[in-house]
Design a protein around this nucleic acid. Sequence first.
RNA 1: GCCCGUGUGGCGGAAUGGUAGACGCUACAGACUUAAAAUCUGUUGUCCUUUCGGGCGUGGGGGUUCGAGUCCCUCCACGGGCACCA
Length: 854
Amino acid sequence: MSLDISEIAPYNFSVVESKWQKFWLDNRSFKTEDRGNKKYYVLEMFMYPSGKVHIGHVRNYTIGDIVARYKRACGFDVLHPVGWDAFGLPAENAALKQKSHPKDWTYKNIATMKSQIRGLGFSYDWEREFATCDEDYYGFQQKIFLALYKKGLVYRKKSEVNWDPVDNCVLANEQVIDGKGWRSGALVEKKMLSQWFFKITDYADELLEELDNLKGWPENVKTMQRNWIGRSEGCSINFSCDNGDQITVFSTRPETLFGATYLAVSPDHPLAQKVAESNETIRNFVSELKKGSVSQQTLDKQEKQGIDTGLTVKHPFLDKRLPVYIANFVLMNYGTGAIFATPAHDERDYDFAVKYGLPIIPVIKSKNNEVPYFGDGILFNSEFLDGLSVVDARKKIIEEIAGRGLGKKEIFFKLRDWGVSRQRYWGCPIPIVYCPKCGAVPLKEEDLPLKLPSDVSFSGVGNPLDQHPHWKHTKCPICGSDARRETDTLDTFVDSSWYFLRFCVGRESDDLLSKDSIKHWMTVDQYIGGVEHAILHLLYARFFSKALADCGLTDVREPFTNLFTQGMVCSVTYKNEQGEWLFPSEVQKNEKGEFVEISTGKKVTVGRLEKMSKSKKNVVDPDVIVKTYGADALRLFVVSDTPADRDFPWSDEGLDGSWRFINRVWRMFVYLKDKGISSDAVQEIRFDSLNSDMQKLFKEFHRAVRDVTISYESQAMNKAIAYIREFVNCIYAVLDQAESNVSLFSVIVRDLIKILAPIAPHICEEAWSMFGFKNLVSESEWPKFCEEYIAVTTINLPIQINGKLRGTIDVSPDASEDEVIQKALEVSNVRKSIGDKPVRKKIFVKGKIINFVV
RNA sequence: GCCCGUGUGGCGGAAUGGUAGACGCUACAGACUUAAAAUCUGUUGUCCUUUCGGGCGUGGGGGUUCGAGUCCCUCCACGGGCACCA
């Protein structure tokens, strides 16, 4: 009796998926092992345990899992770990709000999210899992801190910090966005505090130069890092001031020196301070500029303000004196905090000169004598530079300046040292003690880990560690006197700067950074995460790798060979007339096809696709999706259609389509099983013995394997899926011949399962075992394809006339020019098209095209 | 302002300088069904044409080429990053 494909029961994903998830766990299927094969380290940026997994996580981890499963199937020894970036502010905020302990809140969230992650069937080695708030992890981190300290890469200084008045916390430069705190959004204030710093600036050059060698990184990420490091080459120049001081300025365009008409220093410059002391007007002006501080400055950044100090400096090459201004557009934390201004060739200098009536002297010839002019040209008004090009003039003046001891060639970076102190409880304690006699003293290694006290209270103000009744009181490790612990904790970006190294070592090892393990597993062959970490995390992690290598702890200077930045999951947004966001369920289409709010019937504005977020009410809950459609359908969907590095437009219909495909495949498997397809029937296929339909199918099969393989290799999951779907359609077209071609179908089904398995592992495991195959996961032979079968015997060759398609002919791919021309001219449409016009030229590309030029 | 990136049907997107629109979504039709759903099978850029076929079409304009979505110049739009960095 023949089985009707439409009557096959729907695929029971919930039973199948939990069955195989349990199987993988029980059998430790994805345990990392060094079997002597080539290694492959796949890592997705680890998760912050915020509470629940969101759809963006699902996409990120699905991409990683596809890579991991694909590489495993190709025979690599794969390291694919999972962990938790578990320290950080939200745990403390929750503590305040819900009276929970940060630790309980964090581990509870981890447990929740872990079960969600497991429900998606990701092939992680759970035995290497850890959270950065685990005592042994941050204990190791403290050891690293001490190693860096010993190496001179950590120091403490009093410095102006970015203070977030809402979170009561110091922020790194990187965490200040538009003058606002990255989390709270509050206007950031300036405050002087003693802070710990990592000397990332020691590595500015290496961090910049190595970017050129990171061939596997997206160009935009490298550009962002280059900009952030911000190297500029120029020249320092000393000016003598009439109060006896030397003012050193930095310029990248020293060749414009003869056009200098004034000097400007930052309000924070020592000279400005000095002048302010003796002059009330200036004092008031400077304090006015500083009062506004970051907030005002950023808001009014276009408005240039300044004041004449009354001082003058001598021009180093001319017999004239230049006035010295204090100006708000000069920043103390870049260069030397002072500039010489050439209004004719710099926009800011120009604006300022116009506002304060200062002279403007051009020194580079422009076409229409335009001012300000920033282009190339020939120098004039410039003594010994006259007649030189900008480039030559720059060289020459630097020589002159250096030769006369007035200054030197210099390089400045925008990159600042990394301030890592945070006045927070839920972070890694800094292993330092302050002794009244010995000063700042590092803890001894045997006293690590320095654990966080668990009995803390959260008032919401200040640092809970500092307010703890006794935790900070201790003895000096050197002299034994009463001493005080550092109560600041480390920035959580420290935690994420080396976690990928710890994964190589494994949780059971007491060895901090086992050099052998790291040597074996590093570098990360494929790192996957959001582009939002292009600067902060990725730069810090690169710095850490270099610093740890210099401390002799590892041998790896660049951690991530290939970086993939996946796009965001987006969805439509709806807003009512009041501008409030609405859930899709609150909106419907009316008879006119307009979107209206169901409760009020009023019109709704449909926004463009935006990143899914709770606040915009356009989120979908992965749990709900997994429950209704299954993990495979969800995994398939989030990498379908859209290339993985682009933003993904969520649609319920699309998800439905993926679910339908999973079922379509399932029905096909069940049908084929019924027709006797099984592992026992697998045998070598003799192409010649196949009928023409089957020969065609066999060719399509080889083509599919090739195209899917190529797509996986280039992380083009969307294409891999398209080719798989195409091939499934091919099978469906000849399904009725399965019974008489059992061997062929058995081979095809075996390999189809393999190429689909990285994306939809559960259904593939089920089918694999249903057909009687053994061990899909450990079976590490990727299907092979043979170009010989892909090569076609006839092709549909296009005929063009003057480059326009006028017909096609079926010929062998290596048909000769004569043959093709003869056949082409037999096509009536071609003859008609040529008419009685003489053929002037024939372009023939074998196997590709014939083009008649008439 | 500067630096990246992107622009192809109603939609997501394919396409080593060689038949633009693979694959999917939507929509429509047929088969099955008492019916619906599901499923299977088609059609689906646009305009003209009964058919054969043809015109137009990859953001706009120009160029190179027998031939351009693809290469070059230029302009526009959108997205992202940086932004008083000397």
